[in-house]
Design a protein around this nucleic acid. Structure first.
Lengths: 225, 225
DNA sequence: TTTAAAATATGACATATATCATGTTTTGTT
DNA sequence: AACAAAACATGATATATGTCATATTTTAAA
């Protein structure tokens, strides 16, 4: 099993602030986990005893609404941590994490990390920064949900995925989501999502190859109202 | 001017984790500010050079949507801090803060507090806890916005205000908001808010005395679909 | 390769909510 | 107290989105 202190992935998250000694200690307690596409990493209500570091793959964080529909709150990719909240709270998690493709995760037990939280202010401070950033993003999502049309939200989601996660060599979005996933991100019915995608195709803003989506007029998408 | 180390308000926020010495030092640099109802405390885009501690009154944190409508993200009451994000980031604030009634605020300069962030892990850890909590709440709001009807969101907002901020002696909600404010919380048109409030009245879930609202069937409101 | 299941697509229709118009009440100001 | 301005209220109508039905295509499995 790889060693945290040599792992390049940590550079993308708060673990980069830990000292070599701290990383060696954590590395000795970590466990690796392979998760297949569609598998549940953890579920709303579970008690997390540590955090996950995503070494490979993508997952969605979802929350079940009282009407029975899932809402996707965030997409998490290679390099990011999941479950940071477990470090500061013993409550159960409020979100589920589900793999969108095959993933490789490292599980770092809270019991080991909690020491560093207490001693290494850099680490705590970096976690704080990341949470502050997440909070800012959450504010934006709230405004979008509350004030924008399905058409606008879908356009912005496509732009977001394009800008944040990039495209494959053929130009299609590298994060492959089902139409239902898109619907669960923007908070609408799957049929509405499909309909708006069809509109976007007719307006030559995107093309589709099967379920793959390729943005052909990014500026046009930005102008969608 | 009062002294932080003797101020009871700090017990309600992260400042409670600071030592007496730290509080004395901050107290010497703080400034007090009286803000009238409707006044702007800070605006989206401003650079905050510290945090505010709310000693008296209530304010709303709002964000302007690209369609020109304001969205209320959070209500902040006596005891809470505003602008914590300025402590971990030099970016401009992403929200505006506007007083909902006459307020008394203490401004604590970042330059003084930043020391404590670096030295006192308890303080950083407590901030982290509060942000984690805010993030959890933001997740709930996102799901509500995305998945629930205006009727449900208004009912939940009334319940939230009732449970979090309480009522006056006559039973009306102690936080007095305009119909437009309600509309900006739940992300709908003011007319729709007024209409749904009228429905709630007809269904004997609430009564109104002018713009004041009194919940008369809390359980009924919880059952709204 | 064949077949079943899942995902995508589209039409028809129902419904919630926005918008515009207009009137009434409340609030604040001189 | 009188007045103007703001907030509240309600009707009529338009529009966006949800829901249900039903094809079609794609994917996964036997």
């Amino acid at each position: 099993m790889g060693k945290c202190e040599q792992c390049i992935i940590k550079e993308f998250n708060s673990l980069k602030t830990l000292t070599n000694d701290e990383l060696v200690r954590i590395s000795n307690c970590k466990t690796s986990r392979i998760v297949k596409k569609g598998e549940i990493i953890f579920e709303e209500g579970d008690i997390l005893k540590g955090i996950y570091c995503v070494r490979e793959g993508i997952c969605k964080l979802t929350k079940l609404s009282s009407n029975g529909k899932d809402q996707i709150i965030k997409l998490v990719v290679k390099g990011e941590l999941i479950g940071q909240r477990s470090l500061v709270s013993d409550e159960s998690v409020n979100l589920s994490a589900i793999a969108l493709n095959d993933m490789e995760l490292c599980f770092l037990p809270k019991s080991e990390i909690i020491n560093d939280l207490q001693k290494n202010t850099n680490f705590t401070f970096d976690l704080l920064k990341e949470m502050a950033h997440d909070l800012k993003e959450a504010d934006d999502i709230i405004v979008n949900m509350a004030q924008k049309s399905v058409r606008q939200r879908l356009a912005e989601t496509l732009i977001y995925i394009n800008d944040s996660f990039g495209t494959k060599s053929d130009g299609t979005l590298s994060v492959l989501l089902s139409r239902e996933d898109f619907a669960n991100i923007i908070g609408t019915a799957t049929e509405s999502t499909i309909r708006v995608l069809s509109q976007f195709k007719k307006e030559d803003l995107i093309t589709t190859i099967g379920k793959q989506i390729k943005i052909i007029d990014l500026e046009g998408l930005k102008r969608v109202e």
